[in-house]
Computed example of a mutant assay.
Amino acid sequence: MDIRYSTGKEPFKTMTTEELRKEFLISNIFVKNDVSAVYSHIDRIVTLGAMPVDKKVKLDKNIDPMKDFGVDFFLQRRELGMINIGGDGIVVADGVEYKVNHYDALYLGAGTKDVVLESVDKKNPAKFYMNSVPAHVSYPSRVITYEQANHVHAGSAAESNDRTINQYIHPDILETCQLSMGMTHLETGSVWNTMPAHTHERRMEVYFYFDLPEDQVLFHFMGEPQQTRHIVMHNDEAVINPSWSIHSGCGTSNYTFIWSMGGENRTYTDQDWIRTTDLR
């Protein structure tokens, strides 16, 4: 498991391209029959990816619970959300089988001990994208299908941000300690996300970009509103955004992204908006 330590506002202003990418960019998320894991000390969020092809894989395959978290098993004091962006999959958690099909989500409450992931068809393997945050209460685990998510249309083609926000792990859908998670899809011809930009000092966020053609790129903007920097991103990559940072992106093509938040609250609209003309 890769461990990242939090970077403050002042050091951020002087970081090179390589330093920014090393600290905030998450690549190689999906590896055949394996589980990747990046542990950030920013609100102690863990970003994981699993792509079981012709084998079942254990969620904690590359995690040492006692060494890494001081607990007996990974989710002893954590909750976890996942969205499957690949072929249909199956997750068995403490003996309970959950069918997690394409674009479905699964929430696992704190205290879930044994988690095994597999694909229904090895020729079209599941790709489980996951985030985990600390939790002090155990809420029931459940699948949230794509149909059960809240689908909120936003933006317009004229603004180059015609998109649908799909809210899965959200206060209107189910109870969690602090995790929120959803997926935003941009229509053809739309390339901007989260603009006008905002921050939320009470929550951090991880963006995972996918459905981006391999010959296209995305410019993810972050930093204080008057001290912005960018990271060039490719398909199936994620970026860690501190609470003091904006998080906005513009692609050379349309794309889809998964947003995941942890922090003091789960109020989706708790945002500090920044006028576009005030950005620097």
Rank of each mutant, 00 (worst) to 15 (best):
S160W: 14
E147N: 13
H153V: 06
H153L: 08
S156M: 14
S180G: 08
Q167C: 13
I173Q: 08
P125R: 11
G223A: 07
S180M: 15
I169F: 03
R142S: 13
D215Y: 07
N150L: 14
F128C: 02
T112K: 02
A197F: 05
F210R: 12
S190W: 12
N131Q: 09
E175D: 15
H198L: 05
S138I: 04
E159Y: 08
G223R: 00
D211V: 01
R163M: 05
T164I: 15
I169M: 04
V217L: 01
A158S: 15
H170L: 04
P171L: 08
R202P: 10
N124Y: 09
S180P: 04
T188E: 15
S180W: 00
I169P: 01
S138D: 03
H151V: 04
D162H: 15
P196A: 00
N161K: 14
S190G: 15
H230V: 11
Q178P: 04
S119G: 05
R202E: 10
H185K: 14
V143W: 05
L186P: 12
R229Y: 05
M183R: 15
T112I: 05
T184Q: 09
P213T: 02
A197I: 06
Q167V: 03
H153Y: 09
H136M: 09
P225V: 03
E159S: 10
D114F: 01
H136V: 13
V206G: 13
E205R: 08
